[in-house]
């Protein structure tokens, strides 16, 4: 009869589905947050998986999302380019430490302008994002670029529409460069941009800038490099025009005093030094000091330790700046002393 024929079929399907759902899955590390370091995290994850079989499930959703998810305990670690303030860390029981250093670079899409040709300074970029400068052949831009022919195209500023550490670094730099920017917009992971197009993630900004004629955006350098975008030169604090590169990021990071930074809270924008890139920043990892489930945290720490050591060359390929050895040692000491479970350090030391 019709009825009886259907039931066994349906049961079979249900059983198969149930069987599939209970299939064993390798222990993966789960993390979420900043898109700033995502290119290097993805490279590291790929290599680490080939080496150990352990995968990194990283959702590149922006620093804001990373902070939310680690606070909601839905992931093992969070990643943010904006360091949390020591009070916030204490209140939530989190620990933060720097993982990698990189630079945020302005990128443009102007007909005829190649990478490294356009020269801007903080005040000009701030004016562009404030909506005060609206054409590429504006006199202020022309005065910085006397040798370039700039077209009469309208400027389309692209900004981060999601909660972003990259946004924090960029707006922090612009606030330092322009008092008007500081008072009307300010610096944070998400700000009220008065004009322009919003896009999600470093990926979205890179995509939108490439798609739109006359656009200017800001992305982490690896994105500009990987996607062959036209980055600009900036005038740094010392007054020199500097191009983004591992050297200029390194120069900015060299001045950082990590030893005296409470909970590693340190902002690296607008650093002194003739060769320093003005929008340099570290990307941080957030972990619980007393995790309820220490095993995944240990796996994560093993991954980070491997990345510090064996991942340095991969990072250099993408023009990220690996942390100096002294800082790595300091961070590892922090792991042992602060991340504990039942009185013992969670990290198995390797």
């Amino acid at each position: 009869m019709q009825i009886n024929n259907r039931i066994p079929a349906r049961l079979a399907v249900a059983a198969a589905a149930a069987a599939l759902s209970f299939a064993a899955v390798a222990a993966d590390i789960s993390g979420a947050g900043a898109t700033f370091p995502y290119p290097i995290y993805a490279k590291w994850a790929d290599a680490y998986k080939k080496l150990t079989g352990v995968g990194l499930n990283y959702q590149s959703i922006g620093s804001g999302g990373g902070i939310k998810q680690i606070k909601a305990k839905t992931v093992t670690f969070g990643a943010s380019d904006m360091p949390l303030k020591p009070d916030d860390l204490k209140a939530s029981g989190l620990l933060q430490f720097p993982m990698i250093i990189g630079g945020v670079v302005p990128v443009v899409n102007i007909q005829g302008i190649q990478a490294g040709q356009l020269h801007l300074d903080g005040a000009t970029v701030a004016s562009i994002y404030l909506g005060d400068i609206t054409q590429w052949n504006d006199p202020k831009i022309k005065s910085l670029n006397p040798k370039l022919t700039l077209p009469n195209t309208a400027i389309a500023p692209v900004y981060r529409s999601d909660g972003s550490g990259t946004n924090f670094l960029f707006s922090d730099y612009l606030s330092k460069a322009s008092p008007k920017f500081m008072s009307s917009i300010g610096a944070n992971t998400s700000v009220q941009w008065p004009t322009g197009i919003g896009a999600k993630g470093n990926e979205g900004v890179a995509n939108m800038t490439t798609q739109t004629d006359g656009a200017i955006g800001y992305v982490e350098y690896a994105y500009a490099k990987q996607n062959k975008m036209a980055y600009t030169l900036l005038t740094n604090k010392a007054g020199a025009a500097v191009a983004p590169s591992a050297e200029s990021f390194q120069a900015a990071a060299a001045n950082a005093d990590w030893v005296h930074a409470d909970s590693y809270y340190l902002i690296l924008t607008d650093q002194a030094g003739a060769k320093s890139w003005p929008i340099t920043g570290a990307s941080f990892i957030l972990l619980y000091k007393q995790p309820t489930d220490p095993a995944p945290v240990n796996e994560a720490l093993k991954f980070f330790s491997w990345a510090y050591q064996d991942g340095a060359s991969m990072a250099a390929e993408l023009d990220y700046v690996p942390l100096p050895a002294a800082l790595i040692a300091q961070v590892k000491k922090t792991w042992v002393s602060e991340i504990t479970s039942g009185g013992h350090p969670v990290w198995s030391g390797k």
Partner: peptide
């Protein structure tokens, strides 16, 4: 550029802190 209710939700929900 602007925003609509559904695109605002779609874009920002997973990252709302």
């Amino acid at each position: 550029p602007g925003t609509t209710i559904s695109s605002a939700i779609a874009n920002e929900f997973t990252e709302a802190v």
